[in-house]
């Protein structure tokens, strides 16, 4: 028996210091493959995952922006960034991938409350 479930995955760590973001996105992809509705939410330093001018050549590793850009293909429809976090780092909506929707902290709080589950990274 299967029920329709929404999971919010909140990423608050930056892209290069820790592996949290990558492992969070991996969980999001798998949940989407299992037909869950996924809210992928970036807050605090996590918003740096969404910056579209990252250069993988500089770090001899891969960056996430390409993978994140393709999320709609994996049926993760909503990619959210916390607008207060953007302001803190002097980032603007235009610095981020085009598919990102900005939300206030209150709205993100609501998204999590309306989800069956929330997992934080």
């Amino acid at each position: 028996m299967k029920t329709n479930t929404t999971i919010s995955i909140v990423i608050s760590q930056g892209p290069f210091a820790r592996i949290c973001g990558k492992e969070g996105v991996d969980l999001a992809l798998v949940c989407a493959a299992f037909e869950q509705k996924v809210n992928l939410i970036f807050v605090d330093e996590g918003v740096f995952h969404l910056v579209k001018t990252q250069d993988a050549n500089a770090i001899d590793d891969k960056t996430h922006d390409k993978q994140l850009q393709a999320l709609a293909f994996y049926e993760i429809e909503h990619l959210y960034a916390d607008s207060q976090s953007l302001r803190r780092y002097s980032l603007e909506h235009g610095d981020l991938l085009d598919t990102v929707e900005l939300q206030s902290s209150d709205e993100i709080h609501q998204l999590c409350r309306q989800s069956k589950q929330t997992v934080t990274f």
Binding site: T5, L27, V30, Q36
Partner: peptide, 21 residues
Amino acid sequence: VGLGQLAATLNEPRVRLVQFK
């Protein structure tokens, strides 16, 4: 197991998830 095992568990109707980090 794979991550899919966790996703499958979360799809079960009367299972509640609690995270410890």
